[in-house]
Nucleic acid binder design. Structure first.
Length: 416
DNA sequence: TCTGGGGTCCTAGGACCC
DNA sequence: TCTGGGGTCCTAGGACCC
């Protein structure tokens, strides 16, 4: 057992509960951006049959009937709580990979590969952060994932160890579509070929897997056999693409409104770029009417290559606007747009342009100042005028809880 | 009326070069 | 009658993850 997977239970719901204990024992759901879909559910909400990813408007009745508590997503809160969980883990174990906002892989030294250690760790995270977790232990990441699934569903103390002795029995109980790395398409292909459980997949023929599931699927099979192919990645490599996109709170017809949104997206992309110390050479902008009903639809994207890679927001905005002018067609009702940058490189060894003037040093000083102010006082304290003031395109978030841990004026109050 | 957002990796195929 | 071969880079599309 070398790997542990620590997974926060119903993470977003658990975060809401930390600051409102009255939610304990009640059905609670958290919605996606724009209050569209259900993306987190308490156990009580799962028991009511509210599905993951379902559009919330279809379940209004159930929600009202059972008094389900509904929250807009509050990423400022969840991100901060996630950091607290991660630093608790890092205080206990040197090798931690923060895999997602609510999951971490740990590499365990031989002395720590015990259920007792996992139970203690779980207890510690609970006491220090208020977040309940489940922990799975296994010889590979994929097997630790499977152990975690059992920990969550069947283990009384939220801990499960997959060992050479119980592997066969556990894998036989896992449907193949629940294996990490097997999505709906691969699952259908495997089932059609008679492979239904994780154990079937483990014992499948390498050549067939390689041919139908590529090397990625083959790695999964090897991991199921106990051969570790996916190492612990403690340092996140810098992103190769950075994207900001949103569905509009109100659908937009006119170029002006869309241009405002695209301005804000480009500014956000600039922030993310600078935070990881990078510059980007390529700016793409996309626009879509995509809807779930009939009616005329149109989607397009435009890509602009910059002469000098940059993270300077006005340059990104200019490129995004230019792209938008090229793809905008009047007469459609647009629902979503986005800005993406690629061709990302570290800022220091940026490739210069032989024929263009180097960027003025004031540019980075200005960006640093804006970033510092927005970090201190909250995102959007300072923003670019071209992103507009009314912002009808901005997403709906009618039920967001306060940003308890990241805004001074939204701190929880103990007594009055 | 109302269906999220942000990433990764792999493969195939075309353009281009020598 | 009968098209060279091998390498690299880029893009689009498909699959997956949370």
């Amino acid at each position: 057992m070398s790997f542990a997977l620590v997974d926060c239970n119903n993470f977003y719901v658990s975060c809401e509960r930390v600051f409102d204990p009255g939610l304990e024992g009640r059905p609670v759901v958290v919605l996606s951006n724009n209050d569209g879909c259900i993306i987190a559910r308490s156990n009580e909400a799962k028991a009511l049959g509210l599905p993951m990813g379902a559009p919330v408007f279809r379940y209004r009745r159930v929600i009202r009937q059972h008094g389900v508590a509904v929250f807009s997503s509050n990423y400022a809160l969840y991100g901060d709580m996630s950091q607290r969980v991660m630093s608790t883990l890092q205080a206990a174990v040197p090798e931690v990979e923060a895999y997602s906002i609510d999951e971490a892989f740990l590499h365990l030294a031989p002395a720590l590969r015990t259920p007792a250690f996992a139970r203690d760790l779980r207890e510690r995270v609970w006491r220090w952060t208020g977040i309940p977790t489940s922990i799975g232990l296994g010889p590979t990441k994929t097997l630790a994932k499977i152990a975690n699934r059992f920990a969550k569903r069947h283990a009384p103390h939220g801990v499960c160890c997959l060992t050479a002795r119980n592997a066969d029995a556990l894998l036989a109980r896992v449907p193949v579509e629940d294996v990490w790395g097997i999505g709906p398409r691969y699952a259908a292909r495997l089932q059609a070929h008679g492979l239904r459980t994780a154990r079937d997949l483990r014992d499948a023929d390498d050549r067939w897997i390689r041919q139908h599931l590529t090397v990625v699927g083959l790695r999964t099979v090897w991991e199921l056999r106990g051969r570790s192919c996916l190492p612990l990645e403690q340092v996140r490599p810098p992103r190769k693409a950075i994207l900001c996109s949103r569905s509009f709170g109100t659908p937009q017809r006119d170029l002006a409104g869309i241009r405002e949104a695209v301005t804000a997206f480009a500014a956000r992309v600039g922030e993310k770029l600078r935070r990881q110390g990078s510059v980007a050479a390529v700016v793409s902008v996309f626009l879509t009417t995509k809807d779930h009903g009939p009616g005329p639809s149109y989607s397009n994207r435009a890509t602009t290559t910059l002469s000098i890679p940059t993270s300077y927001t006005p340059d990104l905005i200019r490129a995004a606007h230019a792209g938008l002018e090229r793809i905008y067609r009047p007469g459609f009702v647009y629902r979503k747009a986005g800005v993406m940058v690629t061709g990302i490189q570290p800022a220091p060894d940026r490739q210069g342009d032989l024929f263009a003037a180097p960027p003025a040093p004031e540019q980075s000083a200005l960006m640093d100042t804006i970033d510092a102010i927005n970090r201190r006082w909250g995102r959007g304290t300072l923003c670019f005028g071209a992103s507009g003031l009314d912002r009808p395109w901005q997403m709906n978030q009618q039920r967001r809880s306060p940003r308890f841990t990241t805004r001074w004026n939204e701190l929880p109050v103990a007594g009055t």
